[in-house]
């Protein structure tokens, strides 16, 4: 079975050493996804697999046959930016921009995890039905994406603008 990348089927590489990241960048020329550390420490290579975020550098492409991959190139609707892309621009959520595609893919999946009520390390009650997306929650949930420029405050602001619930915004204001 082929891999599907941003809706298009792509044949599996013949060499099993090819990472999903190298398949995207070197063979498909989808260079939005970035190679940072190439050892699972920085999150620059984050993509979505069936809607869930993974790091593509430690993923062997052959392990993902039949799965649907979404990269940063697949998030925008033609020339219309994804709302989170627009918010990153609005809030200065980057400086050099190298970590940005990974940050944005990661945050899109994170919002889905919040919507499913999945707790994080900093969530108080494990069985709470709904989770308020506070600043602390965003920082913990996004800890797998490093930004060497230190644009984290803008990144968190951008994420909260797009995904923050009104309840979370009230909590923010009270902090």
């Amino acid at each position: 079975m082929p891999i599907t990348v941003n809706g298009s089927p792509v044949p599996l590489p013949s060499d099993p050493r090819v990472s999903l990241l190298d398949l995207l960048r070197e063979e498909l020329h989808l260079t939005g996804t970035k190679k940072g550390c190439n050892q699972g420490a920085c999150g620059a290579c984050t993509v979505l697999v069936d809607g869930e975020r993974i790091i593509s550098c430690l993923a062997l492409a052959v392990q993902y046959d039949g799965r649907a991959i979404t990269t940063i190139e697949g998030l925008a609707d033609a020339d219309a930016l994804h709302p989170l892309q627009a918010a990153f621009i609005e809030h200065d959520g980057f400086q050099c921009g190298y970590c940005t595609p990974g940050q944005i893919c990661s945050a899109v999946a994170m919002a889905d995890e919040i919507a499913r009520g999945l707790p994080s390390h900093v969530t108080g009650a494990l069985d709470a039905g709904t989770i308020a997306l506070t600043r602390d929650e965003v920082r913990e949930r996004m800890s797998g994406n490093l930004c060497r420029c230190g644009a984290h405050n803008g990144i968190v602001d951008a994420i909260l603008e797009v995904y923050g619930t009104s309840e979370a915004k009230v909590l923010e204001a009270a902090e």
Binding site: G43, T46, R53, L58, A59, S106, G144
Partner: peptide, 8 residues
């Protein structure tokens, strides 16, 4: 780890 790694 991180959310990405825990998914894998």
């Amino acid at each position: 780890a991180s959310a990405q790694i825990r998914n894998m």
